[in-house]
Design a binder for these strands. Sequence first.
DNA 1: CTGTTAGCGCTTTCAC
DNA 2: GTGAAAGCGCTAACAG
Lengths: 338, 338
Amino acid sequence: MHMEVLAMATIKDVAARAGVSLGTASRVLSGSSQTSPDSRSRVLAAAAELQYVANGPARALRRARTDVLGLLLPDIRNPFFSELAHAAEQEARRLGYTVLLANADEDRDQEAAYLRTFASQRIDGLLLAPQQGGSPELESLHASGLPLVLVDRAVRGLDAPLLSTDNAQGVAQALAWLQAGGHRDVAFVGGPAAISTGVERRDAYLAGRAAHGISTDDALVDAGDFQLGSGTDAMLRILDRGVRPTAVFGADGLMTAGAMRALRQRLGDEARAVEVVSFDDLDWFDLRSPGISAVVNDAAEIGRLGVAALADVIAGRPVASQRIATTFVDRRPAGGTA
Amino acid sequence: MHMEVLAMATIKDVAARAGVSLGTASRVLSGSSQTSPDSRSRVLAAAAELQYVANGPARALRRARTDVLGLLLPDIRNPFFSELAHAAEQEARRLGYTVLLANADEDRDQEAAYLRTFASQRIDGLLLAPQQGGSPELESLHASGLPLVLVDRAVRGLDAPLLSTDNAQGVAQALAWLQAGGHRDVAFVGGPAAISTGVERRDAYLAGRAAHGISTDDALVDAGDFQLGSGTDAMLRILDRGVRPTAVFGADGLMTAGAMRALRQRLGDEARAVEVVSFDDLDWFDLRSPGISAVVNDAAEIGRLGVAALADVIAGRPVASQRIATTFVDRRPAGGTA
DNA sequence: CTGTTAGCGCTTTCAC
DNA sequence: GTGAAAGCGCTAACAG
């Protein structure tokens, strides 16, 4: 006994069944120009009967356009980026685009590989949160004229619109909060020195701490690579230098979570006495007790504006870089610090 | 002043520059058949000089194959699925496929829309964690012979290989843990009755609770839709019935987190006295004090095996459904329950 | 408003 | 081993 796999119907089949020419069928199906109500309904009926689904590659080849946007992110498991992806996708759908989402896994080679894939897929535009330092693939993709918008992170020497967080503002909010809590010994778990957000947040922190009454002892400062385990490692290094911070500031949600794990490993339940503030707010920061205060970095807004900007670039409209403001959530218990 | 956008080089340009025929250039570039070392090196050189990138749609049109797999998930922001996506993507790359990732947002219409998009893109196969009850789009996609593998959730009446968690086993582990803790009044925050994981976990819990000394009062049971807010709502409903559970069991990570939020809203810091166990382990469950115990549902393994199974289906090899075993992490403080 | 036709870029016969 | 040529499914230009 044989299971018949029905071959996909083509537009030619639809035209034949509807008794019209191939051209007319195409016009009805793509809505590109006027057709008589009669042929319209017959084509539509035929298409439905045959379960016709347009062949995307053929259409793309002919139109030199795919209606697909690429979205290349550093780490899909980082809540900041999964939130950004979600919002970007919603906006893209609204604008009639499909999103091809890819995950560079904080790895340059993998980013380069996806850049090549995207190039060969002939996407209409790319929304990218880049790895450190760019790559030849990125250079040539941009040079080839592919519409490109950067989100979250800058690339030195790459002249493309960038939608990023106001990192200096966010750090200032955290510093003010630390000062209000009377903290002097604050541990800072930064991000990679090769990524713009890592640099901007670290620089703002180092430059601002003295004015906020915070120790300038660099033994209190270390960095990871924006993946959870590295935050733990960085915090362990800090603690192993013998310092005893009364508060910790993590340069992103994952660095903060990682630092908290280190705190628990070394201090057990005493860890709860260390106040925590994070750049990026995570879903569960209000569930811990005491709560974790956070700079709210609006991933959804960045994703939405990024896609809108990309659509503008594709349409040839002028687009400017933009900094997104942060807000702050104070989850310190009413009574003040311990 | 004009910025020249260099047109993408085609294989024809490469052939001309290398001084060979179009056919030879194609053979070298796709490695499909033998070529002389001489023409090989000249074609490769020409391709490099022109920064040639093959036109994917043209290739797909001709070969009737795209080397792209679709991955359609219910919610990219659910850590279970972002972990699954990450693992699936790694495995797909290893096998020479690119993954097109899409997010149904726990919404049937959006799932149907992406199913249509995938169909028109002519993906080589689909890895799907479906919405409730299937859809005409899914039926016809499957009927058309598109290689299909289901992950995490079943669809009634759809005969496709399924890689899913052993939900009964996981619930049994949680029940044993609850019993060991001496709990009688346990709140259960389930998932949607229309999703197989929701049903299986609820049924296993309801069927097993009495034998584990747990109250069979249904006032203690409610359900959400696997999105965080709904877990909070469900738990609030339970609490508002006047019951006072000593432990809570969440049917997935998000239901658990949502329930915890409700607990804090109603009980404040007293919430810490309520023990928590979750189906799905989240990154931060060890950071709360007391820790949250969890059934470990191996998303990465499911993603990996799912892609491998899909590759088998594509290659025409036989594939069987498979249940993935769970493990359990007990994070109850040494001294036992309060 | 409709039919006919060329051709997008590529792979793959078919000859040589 | 290579060149010439056909054709994948579709859209758009051109006649009518």
